[in-house]
Write a protein that binds this DNA or RNA. Sequence first.
DNA 1: TAAGATTTGTTCGTATGTATC
DNA 2: GGATACATACGAACAAATCTT
Lengths: 250, 250
Amino acid sequence: MANGEGSSARLRRPAQVAEAIKSLIVEGGLRAGDRLPTEAELIDRFQKAKSTVREAMRILEAQGIVTTRSGPGGGTFVAAVSSERASALLANYFYFQNLSIEEVYEVRRALEPELAASLAGRLTDLQLDDLEAILERYPAAPKTAEEEREHHVASLRFHGKLAEIADNQLLGFIIGFIAKILTDLTVYRHLYKAPNEALWREGREHQRALLAALRSGNARAARQVMRSHMTTAQRLMEAQAAEVGKRFIA
Amino acid sequence: MANGEGSSARLRRPAQVAEAIKSLIVEGGLRAGDRLPTEAELIDRFQKAKSTVREAMRILEAQGIVTTRSGPGGGTFVAAVSSERASALLANYFYFQNLSIEEVYEVRRALEPELAASLAGRLTDLQLDDLEAILERYPAAPKTAEEEREHHVASLRFHGKLAEIADNQLLGFIIGFIAKILTDLTVYRHLYKAPNEALWREGREHQRALLAALRSGNARAARQVMRSHMTTAQRLMEAQAAEVGKRFIA
DNA sequence: TAAGATTTGTTCGTATGTATC
DNA sequence: GGATACATACGAACAAATCTT
């Protein structure tokens, strides 16, 4: 498990203990749900003060790899890091970066069509209906900036849903992450320009066509439609002149 | 800034304080290097015990968004999350996932050619020489499993270097992250098959051709060469029958 | 329901370490 | 080297959560 500090930096005691506990997990081959020694045992084993051990636990908890419960039968347990947690931690990194729309879309243009192609013909009717439902929630063109924002969030949810369904966990995570930061950006953005109806209509046509291609199992068409959709989406975003980066977060 | 917990979960006090401090950062528009109130001031402001505040600090430190120094003029400071830290935290997520070679390469095949194309003709002589130097460190075909491993790590450093140079920070981060997990996998893997010389030679030719395309500024060629290179690299990896995922970490 | 047991959660006071002037 | 200002570490006492009986 990665230690997260530059290996040169001298670690303070809580961080040292946290590393030692990580070793217990890795060396011991512990899996999600497995129990770690109690606080008292750890204090005894490492010969450290209670607060030191507790700070170590907070470090591991912040990273999402353990959870703690009090009470009998409680204790500290190994946890599989959730994708939500991983996304949130990664978002902190980009908080300090200032991504441009162009940067985000260069990645989307490369990945989303692949995901679409890989999913063609592999979705259940239930999943297809879910996707359809997302589109149906906003059948009319947005009239106000507020409506435009809701449309955009719904559209991103569509992509987030595709990401969840992905067989490829890495691809799914990345696409889901991008949908998340674009959603946060959209939600917390307060300056809007007038909705661009032509672009909206074009985007909507693409999503319909995409759904049809996914349903019929036409991977080539799905890839092609998603490619066009990304181009349109990028133009929509740029038309809004939003800036990604600082302030895209909760 | 993302809070990292499911928003429904009731937070304990250290986590509450950590969130409050995050708010100080976000609402106050604080930037990397800015100073937060001293421990004593935070204890006073939040009316919490010293250890509670300290546990909160460990949480923020683990996420990479603050650093602390003792001594006069010391205290807690906002830090830009480093890409290394972000990578390490993200690697913890995939520790529990078990990615296949195929999954990783589906993403590499889509992204690395784009990066190569975007870099063509934009590298300094110094950067090109750095890349050349990485290739030159292993001019001969690997004879042993050990040598083969070193070659592979060097090749991944080549990709990591390209990722560092990338103008697109998102694209660069993703490619750097993938190079990192593949490197960790390679380093900590202890079972090797015999090196496949034909594939090695093919990969090497690709990297040479790529360097030439980058130097001459031929974006189309760079993209095309990288595409072939990815195919070869995937076959090399699969020939080694390594499994990504569990145990790819330190 | 209530009491007791177990385990983490929180507080406080004190002492120590560390960097700057 | 001494004073100062800060974080770091310790440990004892008590609170809260939650399981068992």
